[in-house]
Design a protein around this nucleic acid. Structure first.
Lengths: 339, 339
DNA sequence: TTGTAAGCGTTATCAT
DNA sequence: ATGATAACGCTTACAA
């Protein structure tokens, strides 16, 4: 009854008021001003639900996070999300976060979400190779943007960090420091980022003509416990590694804890490095050598691509973001404390 | 056109179909079955937007998180949120998370949110004393549930951890261990939890007849950097403390880093304890003595209270959750490693 | 430039 | 037990 009321109050029709409010051009400027002022005065606010039903657009972008994963918790990731949300907000879009639980069927949850009318587009994280979520999104032609590249992606639908390069650099650095027994605790194999990271690692090893003990290449979830277990397994090998690369800083934390439990001094007896430059990494003891990227740019990039899709905008966006190594104590004790 | 289509397909009226679908009693059971089956077959799904417009209910519960705070990141907190979301989901409600940025006016953002029609209720976190958000919510009679008690709260609108007790216990423990110079790095003063914690600390000190150097009681944000700064300030005092209590584990991390930078060995030269039992605490070196509570119960409690309000349910909920101390290395090196 | 009126897909109030 | 029909608050042809 609200626009109707406003219209009545002004002695205009609903349509004129609607047009005035929504910036259509075929409205007398004086009329528009009157309408705007009256709306202001009365405190009129359009009902988004009605708007959505009538227009078929929600101005909401959604993301589905696994509730029990640490996705919610990885500080790098929440900052990416915050940056994405901020950019959307500036363009009058909202980010809507929902959760998915272990007991729910992923395809079903995604399907329900995109058919709910709640969101105009969806962000995908933890991209998997030949991701079934993406197949579905494509099938229903629902706008999406991925954080994480897959081989068949076009430039309009993803941003990613150059993980292969990052782990190539990281590995090469260790090799130059004299390491040859370098283990790599990768994230779950299904994630495309894991593949990219592994590839960078393998390539550096290969170029240095170092053969890889398959025991040194493990996959696990991005949490401390998995990393501890893998580290224990690895460090009890007869031919134990002298260096452990981890898929993120959380894993590095677990790896360090496990090493110390086993009596190794990290940074001296064994080198450990992570990825992501999470806050705790610089405050940890030892501080953690890691890989850093432009979190803000990644988040904004996701939103820009989304608006390009959902609104036909033409934002320029950089698909690939370079990563740089941040050297700290966990793989080099000669490094002094940072402040 | 969808329910209409389904109705046409069945040779029934929209209303009958609607009633059948929504479990009304005044429908012939055979008709209902037919409808349900047809819906299944055709793949009919009610449009939530239309439902919302017609019914005036969204079945969404919202929460507004400060985008740049660590709220998003505190693992304890995201688990509370996940638990809340899970319970809501089981009752066919969704949790919607939006962000608020520093440059936005808080009252305005909350106002827009509750008048947007997007949510039927709202969770409040980081409760402040005489919180203006709550005044507004009350004024508009909008359903809300707080994580964090304030003096004038009724039992139907909050859950909280017994922070006063927790910090009383924690402080008393230190006193029993021979400490008398106990510093407390509290969260921002405006938060009600900060007041409660401070009160517990003060009471324990008071009962032990220990006078408190006001320099030992500082307030800061729940992040590593603030904690480091405060710790540095405190540890450079002529009369430095022998123990530092922190408002959460993230601060404990910063405090430990600062102590070590200054050449103190945490767990030996100085005791440090945190709160919240964040994941990193047990893997840190030293592992962090902390305070733990039933995260799941707290999250569920919030959702139960919310459904009580929004749907007139009658869930029993426990407003106050006790906290227990988890003893680790940071305040007692005699403790051995946990696994 | 403005108004009329038909949707958008449901729910809900009456009758029947 | 079922069916018409009017909301819900807004957008959008189409007409004027």
């Amino acid at each position: 009854m609200s626009i109707k009321k406003l219209a009545a109050h002004l002695g205009l029709s609903k349509s004129t008021v609607s047009r005035a409010l929504n910036g259509y051009t075929d409205v007398n400027e004086q009329t528009r001003e009157k309408v705007l002022k009256a709306a202001q005065d009365i405190g009129y606010k359009a009902n988004p639900t009605a708007k959505r039903l009538a227009s078929g657009k929600s101005r909401n972008i959604g993301i589905i996070l696994p509730a029990h994963s640490r996705m919610f918790v990885s500080s790098a990731f929440s900052k990416v999300l915050a940056a994405a949300a901020e950019f959307l907000a500036k363009h009058d879009y909202q980010l809507i976060v929902t959760t998915i639980f272990d007991w729910q069927d992923e395809q079903q949850v995604y399907f329900d979400f995109i058919t709910s009318g709640l969101v105009d587009g969806i962000f995908i994280v933890r991209t998997r190779h030949l991701d079934p979520r993406i197949s579905m999104l494509k099938k229903y032609q629902f706008p999406y943007v991925c954080f994480g590249f897959d081989t068949d992606f076009k430039n309009d639908c993803f941003v990613d960090v150059d993980n292969a390069q990052a782990f190539y650099d990281l590995t090469q650095r260790q090799i130059m420091h004299g390491h040859s027994r370098i283990a790599f605790l990768d994230a779950p194999n299904e994630l495309t980022v894991s593949q990219a990271r592994k590839q960078g690692y393998l390539q550096a090893m290969h170029e240095a003509h170092i053969s890889i003990d398959p025991h040194w290449l493990l996959n696990g979830e991005l949490n401390e416990l998995d990393a501890m277990k893998m580290t224990q397994k690895i460090m009890l090998l007869i031919h134990r590694p002298t260096c452990i690369l981890c898929a993120d800083d959380t894993m590095a934390l677990g790896a360090i804890a496990a090493c110390e439990t086993l009596g190794y001094q990290v940074g001296i007896d064994i080198a450990v490095a992570g990825y992501g430059d999470y806050e705790h990494s610089r405050y940890n003891n030892p501080s953690i050598t890691t890989v850093q990227y432009d979190i803000n740019a990644v988040g904004e990039g996701m939103s820009k691509l989304m608006l390009n899709k959902a609104e036909g905008k033409q934002f320029e966006v950089k698909n690939w973001h370079e990563a740089t190594i941040v050297i700290r104590q966990s793989d080099d004790y000669s490094i002094t404390n940072e402040t």
